[in-house]
Nucleic acid binder design. Structure first.
Lengths: 173, 173, 173, 173
DNA sequence: TATGAATGAGTATTCATTCAT
DNA sequence: GATGAATGAATACTCATTCAT
């Protein structure tokens, strides 16, 4: 991949994450990337194509982050790893996550199945631990982590730090 | 308030809730409201002014919905009422709620303090019931309700129905 | 119709006739009409809409020009009037005609049926005059007039003047 | 001439003939020719240069087609050959002709002198046959053939077939 | 010879906003 | 209060062309 193509990708990620897809014009992306506007279209066809290219990256990163949870064999440790996850995201990767959350509300880009494997794993963990309604517990914890991630991305990790111990204790993990 | 002004307000609410603020043009609002585009600016100054006017409504509705929780004197019943709340929203009012959630991610319009009184009330309730860390419990339940509301607004109330009993039991309320 | 709307119409007619539809940009039209580019779209929706509006005029003018032929009761005089027609077009109306011919080759705008009533009338005239194959004679004369009109529009009426007498004599009208 | 250069030429001919010069982009030409866009400019300098190269071909073909008329020594047979000409064009060569006609109205490319030798030959033929105004007869027949060719290129040879016998008889050739 | 990255000017169209009536 | 004409800046996208490789 050429330098300029990468510049476009990272400028777009940054702006999409900050302002959203609709509110970011291709001309601002080009400007920030230091390239001509036309180049965006030569490389990605259209604005949606650029978004798609970025989303592939985003999904890969999320996959990487979730992998340790999904491949954990011990149920307690799986839950623990998930709870710790939002606190361990590298700030340099926040934009990937912000975009993911922004797109839930913008565009038709929302794909709720993306989290399916994680929820399944959690359900398994809760079942192993003898919880009465493991599916619901899984969905609930997933939502909690989702909400905490949201807050972290908006206001920084420090504002949510207190929840870490709280949740670990609540779930005894 | 004149008819036409109200038409504008309800057309804008509908469109903002469906497509977001940025993706809704004043011309589409005028068209759907059956008024001239100019009238929007006579009444509300500019597009942001229109959004502000709508948000006043939105906040009033949310206030109304939360009032029964906040003025409940029995801690168990307060928690119970909050859990039931997202399931009891009249579908005709969904747009107010959708807009509220959409705006969290769009615009600089997010006002996290809006929920402060509710969280305080919840903290009080959990304290009364002897929970160890009532502030965190309050924040957590608030986030859970937030997440469930989100899902209800996106996919309908039926998809989340199962959580009602689950949560009521979990919190023994 | 407002002044500015008419300005747009006449600027567009002029430019479409000179350079063709595709080769004329909306910005050049706006510039020549002395209006903002946006106004074109407010009045005509899009570039095609502008062309359509012009074509309605064009067809009305052509109708007017052909009417004396079509409502002529004497066959010889009908043919005579048609032959004289291209020589009698007011130069101020050339653009309407040029556009008509340009569009035959550009766009999907060609409508061969437009000339049907004229050809029918000619066929009738030739039949009345005892010609052996009146339909073909009609089509042929129509084509000849078409070709002469083309030349007149390109190079001026003088270059074709000699054909006037030649054709009148040829058809003895 | 290299393969690729020929590919460009034939792709451009096809597209210019179908959509016109202005409406055909160099990128579409390159795509259809299966070459890089840059190669067009290496070979032909610019888009106009490509058109010029094609027009040389076009004129050569037209010359070939007219040669039998121009070198015919018998006046009747010369006229006969011209009348038959548009019906005998090989459909695989239609694009050359379409382009020729399209360009009459687009671009500054029209060259009316191209037909001079043909018209001179016709004038000679009509003079030989004792027509009263051979120059005009020549110009007229040329226009008729031109018009019939136009129709054939647009709607196919069958739609004009009937004119063949009609004209041959009209001119007794 | 041939490519493919890159550009700057241009395209049709939409936008929020103003203003005379 | 209400309209509809009008605008200028912005939008996503296309174009012919250049150039290093």
């Amino acid at each position: 991949m050429t330098d300029k193509k990468e510049n476009i990708l990272s400028a777009a990620l940054e702006l999409f994450a900050k302002d959203g897809y609709n509110a970011t014009s291709t001309s601002r992306i080009a400007q920030r990337a230091g390239v001509s506007e036309g180049l965006i279209f030569r490389h990605f066809g259209n604005k949606k194509g650029l978004l798609r290219a970025i989303m592939e990256d985003v999904e890969a990163r999320i996959g990487q982050l979730l992998a340790p949870v999904i491949f954990e064999d011990d149920p307690k440790r799986a839950i623990r790893k998930l709870i710790l996850m939002p606190f361990s995201i590298d700030p340099s990767e926040y934009d990937y996550w912000k975009l993911q959350f922004k797109l839930k509300w913008e565009e038709e880009y929302h794909n709720p199945n993306k989290m399916k494997p994680l929820i399944d794993k959690l359900a398994w963990a809760f079942r192993e631990l003898g919880y009465k309604d493991p599916e619901k517990e899984a969905a609930l914890l997933n939502q909690i982590i989702d909400a905490i991630s949201t807050e972290i991305l908006r206001d920084g990790v420090k504002t949510q730090e207190a929840f870490k111990a709280f949740l670990l204790e609540k779930y005894s993990v």
